Amino acid sequence: MTTVTTHEIRRAGPRFGAEVVGVDLTRAVDDATADELRQAFQDHKVLVFRDQNLTPDQHVAAVRIFAEPFDHPTAAKDAGNPLVYPYNVRQTGKASTWHIGGLWRSPVFAIESLTYEEVPALGGHTLWADLQTAYDGLSEPFKVLLESVGAVYDADPQNYAQGTKRSSVTETVEHPVVLEHPVTGRKGLFISTSALGLTGVSKEEGKILLDHLLRHASSPDYTIRFGWNPGDFVLWDNQATWHYAVDDYGDGARVYRKVIGVERPDAA
């Protein structure tokens, strides 16, 4: 059954991020609501839906509102749905660095999403930074320079799989450090802490530029922070933001499921 909803988009920060209230994603939403959610996602880049308690199948259906769920070649898969990837940080380790998902491929994932199952009593929040606003904060001459600069990353998806020991880099992929968003056309920084180096400049210049860009893009001026309860669902624009899972909860539990989305072939 398709459910007609009356909902509210509550801004969570002055620059980006919002909580969606009044939408039950355990049931199919009507077309008008789906259109409004997609617009809200473009506007706010990070959307949080509290107390959804999605099953794996419902999680996939929720992501399908926004993008095409992606079959990851190396991620451990949920027994009930191969498009769902379960994580338990006590086994898989923590991702406590600023990063963008899917840098081993081009284009990277359009969106990433999580459904939380267990969270620590205190701590375990997640930070996002708005890479487009960070780009806006650069000087015009610096923007011109960055248009000709790329960043190089490991192209082996196995080295990004949960709980695996990284092998040496044998193949690389290059991404521009300034990305024009494929949906909105807005320019933003596109950089991650896993960058192996920059192209278009000397090695020495690249080190200086990379250090500056990483610090600039993670500035508190461009960030938003969310805390979690079991059942919460969040999705974010992986081409306009990067994120950081705060490791301040010791050996506490953090269990969640991830579903990734890529652009649909007919999205253009």
Rank of each mutant, 00 (worst) to 15 (best):
V4N: 05
V4H: 09
V4C: 01
T5Q: 13
I9F: 09
G17A: 01
A18F: 04
E19L: 00
V21G: 02
D24C: 13
R27D: 06
D31K: 10
T33G: 10
T33V: 02
A34P: 13
Q39R: 15
Q39C: 13
A40G: 12
F41E: 08
Q42I: 05
Q42N: 07
D43A: 12
V46Y: 07
F49L: 06
F49G: 10
Q52F: 09
Q52T: 05
T55M: 14
D57C: 00
H59P: 14
A61H: 14
A62W: 12
V63P: 15
A67Y: 05
E68Y: 02
H72M: 06
A75I: 00
A76H: 06
D78S: 09
N81C: 05
N81L: 01
L83S: 10
V84N: 08
Y85S: 09
Y85T: 01
K94T: 05
P107M: 04
V108G: 02
L114S: 08
T115Y: 01
P120H: 01
L122M: 09
G123M: 06
T126N: 10
L127M: 15
Q132G: 08
T133Q: 13
A134F: 13
P141L: 00
K143I: 00
K143F: 01
E147S: 08
V149W: 08
V152W: 06
Y153M: 08
A155C: 11
D156A: 07
P157T: 03
Y160S: 06
A161T: 12
A161Y: 15
S167I: 00
P176V: 00
V177L: 06
H181A: 04
P182I: 01
G185N: 13
K187H: 08
G188V: 00
L189H: 12
S194F: 04
L196M: 10
L198Y: 11
G200R: 12
V201K: 08
V201L: 11
G206P: 15
K207Y: 12
I208L: 13
H212G: 08
A217F: 00
S219P: 12
T223S: 13
R225D: 15
D232N: 02
F233W: 10
V234G: 07
D247N: 11
D251A: 14
V255D: 06
Y256E: 01
Y256I: 01
K258F: 03
V262N: 14
P265E: 09
A268L: 14
